[in-house]
């Protein structure tokens, strides 16, 4: 096993374990911490795919901003007593498990017929493709319009978040 493969399988294993642990935790704070671990490992996986810029942005945005927001909200709500949030094994839970296992089986079935096992190594172009320079160039030329549209989206999100969180809905 080469170094590259070792890194990939280690990161993949930690990603899978942290995703499962996130689902199994009763305390949402622990779930959030496992999700942060998951995000760091995904950032590492992006690096193995030569996507340096996306890897760094992923860690800054997800582990830095979004998860801090999550933790902040969990602390703010202060869900002290877990009695209010008893999650019992009902029929719906078994149905949910059955459906997600069925989805996984379908995805694996599709992958089995994809013929991608023989897909070659990473494209040589990917080495320079993940850099800020290359992505910046196409972001401000080919993808200029979607980039400008994201500013509207973020503005709407800011206004919406402030409006929703500001005061009670009943007022």
């Amino acid at each position: 096993m080469t170094f590259e493969q070792g890194v990939f399988y280690f990161l993949a294993a930690v990603t899978v374990v942290s995703a499962v642990m996130m689902l199994l935790q009763r305390n949402p704070v622990n779930s959030a911490l496992y999700l942060i671990l998951n995000f760091f490992c995904l950032g590492g996986l992006y690096l193995t795919l030569n996507a340096q810029f996306i890897a760094i942005v992923h860690i800054i945005v997800y582990a830095g901003a979004i998860m801090v927001l999550f933790l902040f909200v969990i602390m703010l709500l202060n869900l002290g007593d877990d009695k209010r949030l008893i999650e019992h094994l009902g029929l719906r839970m078994y149905l949910g498990i059955a459906f997600s296992v069925a989805l996984l089986a379908e995805l694996l079935y599709i992958l089995g017929f994809s013929g991608l096992e023989s897909a070659g190594p990473l494209s040589p172009a990917s080495v320079e493709m993940g850099t800020v320079e290359y992505l910046g160039k196409i972001l401000f030329t080919k993808f200029l319009f979607p980039f400008e549209m994201t500013s509207f989206l973020l503005l709407a999100a800011i206004v919406g978040a402030v409006l929703l969180a500001k005061k009670k809905l009943t007022e």
Binding site: V61, L69, L164, A165
Partner: peptide, 12 residues
């Protein structure tokens, strides 16, 4: 990011 901000505001 936008979804997380708005969604958490809704939860609050």
């Amino acid at each position: 990011a936008a979804e997380a901000a708005v969604g958490l505001a809704i939860i609050i």
